[in-house]
Design a protein around this nucleic acid. Sequence first.
DNA 1: CTTAATCGTTTGTATGTACAAATATAAATA
DNA 2: TATTTATATTTGTACATACAAACGATTAAG
Lengths: 142, 142
Amino acid sequence: MRTSESKYCKCLYFTANALARKTEKLAQQSWKRVGLAPSHAYLLMLVLERPGEQPGVLAAELQLSPSTITRLIEKLEEKKLLVRTTDGKMANVYPTPRAKELLPDLYRCRDEFYGSYCDILGRAESARLVQDMGAVADKLVV
Amino acid sequence: MRTSESKYCKCLYFTANALARKTEKLAQQSWKRVGLAPSHAYLLMLVLERPGEQPGVLAAELQLSPSTITRLIEKLEEKKLLVRTTDGKMANVYPTPRAKELLPDLYRCRDEFYGSYCDILGRAESARLVQDMGAVADKLVV
DNA sequence: CTTAATCGTTTGTATGTACAAATATAAATA
DNA sequence: TATTTATATTTGTACATACAAACGATTAAG
């Protein structure tokens, strides 16, 4: 169903959520090839780029809550892609060799995802929208 | 944390999700007063406006999957705000008297929510963004 | 008619996410 | 140094949502 068919398309609540769900689905398709959900893949790429970072820092970077990061790390540990070391109250997260091997594939998926929405929306158009949404999200701090 | 502090703010996946989460939170605050989650409240208002509608129709209108609508209805039945009648393979959803009494409060919450984001973003600005996002969501059908 | 395809709904299970409370540790203060 | 306070992380629980399969009833085909 097209968004515009609904009376509720005028409401930020509906529109923001609907767009997020569709984006999520598009991203899931791009990352299906490496068997990872988008959020897992982005966390993994971040850890590969900055090995040893703390969960709290990862949470801030990905704009997710610390508890969500804990949950994502758990899953990636199960898949032998990440390990955690604990030192005092701090934890550090490192990629495994298996994760390092996966990195080129991860980048390919990311490029494919960027490409897929740029193909649909146009490169400039999507950059503009992303910027607008980001600005609004900043203002909307609750 | 501001969205723009993150490297990932350039990605549609992150931005769309972050905006949706912040919008969700803002909406939750507005509807806290009636003790309903935003999605429950919107479904309830829809059923109050169109009593007897079928779950599938409600799903299409709210851009949610039929199974999600089933789950929302269950919760609202627990709260004695909705009832379902089954006729063959079809079901019909009706508001209870209790729900009808709640309607003015629901509208107040909705107005408060609209007001809260219009205050932050400006009325014209938010209308424009909502329209842009809706258009993109339409194009992004997966 | 009787069997097969179809349609609307619900159920089982899973993903993504967060809040509040619990833990554990480190820092600050008395 | 002992005690309070603050900080980082994890755990329990819950919300929001969807997919795939099951179910039940209708419609279509043979």
